[in-house]
């Protein structure tokens, strides 16, 4: 009953679900606009542009301006989805995100396309591995990392409904569906989705790492180590209750994310544990500027694989 559902071989680029959903949302709500930085192609906005030419505001290669323009549009009654490659949105426009979006409390959805090391061989300048740390540090900004297409679409529904300042990763690296078939909704804001109730170890993962954690759960099960998988799709605010419960009911936690360890998911989990229920934990992430290689190669390089997660889990419970 608690065995994980096997991870499918079929994989998806979340940007496809994103663009389909954006068009559907825009058809239903005239307030929805897209703002981008010459990223029509990379943000998969071609179809949106064809359908709503006036509602795609492409400001050119100018991220500070892009986020400021979104704030002005929000002031004027619109709901902007700001679409840009993660490293440039989160890095180049950090102050605009802070002052113009979060501090101004505008309902703006900052969509970080191709996050993590999705741009592989293009190198660390194009990797968005610091974004979760930077964005988590900003008050009044929700930080979402949907793990598959279903979660991406459901998170977008939430974003429009909530009217909140939101930073959301939209994955490019192809991932299998990780949403269990019995879920009514694929994404619930502020709630961790738990697969299994294994009492040996908790595998806490986000985004691209969720399917890998589910694979690790199967590897460990075969060895008699019972794991539960926590899919953290809301990084901020963090679901402390589910993390504390996992710490209480297991011997330790492995936390894995496609990002730096200073300030991201691991840091959020660590603070939650320290304050509430100190527990053994191992944190996996991107620990240096990456060498040249594809996204898959780099995930392997940093041990962000099912094997890497399973190895860490064994050491923790061993």
């Amino acid at each position: 009953m608690n065995a994980h559902s096997s991870v499918s071989n079929e994989t998806f680029d979340c940007r496809v679900a994103f663009s389909e959903k954006l068009i559907a949302l825009a058809e239903a709500d005239p307030r929805i606009v897209a703002v981008c930085n010459d990223s029509v192609g990379s943000s998969n906005l071609n179809a949106f542009r064809d359908r709503f030419p006036d509602r795609l505001i492409n400001v050119g290669i100018a991220e500070q301006n892009m986020v400021g323009v979104a704030a002005g549009l929000a002031n004027g009654g619109f709901i902007p989805f700001v679409c840009a490659a993660g490293p440039f949105l989160s890095g180049r426009a950090t102050e605009q995100v802070k002052a113009d979006v979060a501090y101004s409390n505008y309902g703006i959805v900052l969509c970080a396309m191709s996050p993590g090391m999705a741009y592989g061989e293009l190198g660390p300048t194009h990797h968005s591995i610091e974004d979760l740390s930077w964005m988590r540090a900003i008050d009044n900004l929700d930080v979402l990392v949907p793990a598959d297409p279903e979660q991406t679409k459901a998170a977008m529904d939430w974003a429009v409904k909530s009217g909140r300042p939101i930073y959301m990763r939209v994955g490019r690296h192809k991932v299998p569906s990780v949403t269990p078939a019995d879920r009514d909704v694929a994404f619930t804001f502020g709630k961790i989705d738990v697969t299994g109730d294994g009492s040996d170890v908790a595998l806490v993962a986000t985004g691209t790492l969720v399917s890998r954690a589910l694979e690790a759960q199967a590897i460990l099960a075969a060895e008699g180590i019972l794991a539960r998988v926590l899919n953290v799709s809301t990084i901020k605010p963090i679901d402390a209750e589910t993390i504390i419960k996992a710490a209480k009911e297991t011997k330790g936690l492995v936390v894995a994310e496609e990002g730096v360890l200073e300030g991201g998911l691991g840091a959020a989990v660590s603070m939650t544990l320290s304050e509430n229920h100190p527990a053994k934990a191992k944190f996996l992430g991107v620990t240096s500027f990456a060498p040249t290689g594809s996204n898959d190669f780099l995930l392997e390089h940093f041990g962000l694989t099912a094997k890497g997660i399973a190895d860490a889990a064994r050491k923790l419970v061993g």
Partner: peptide, 14 residues
Amino acid sequence: LPIGVGSAVASKLS
């Protein structure tokens, strides 16, 4: 000014 540009776009769009 970027915020003003967004406001001016919103003015026309709406």
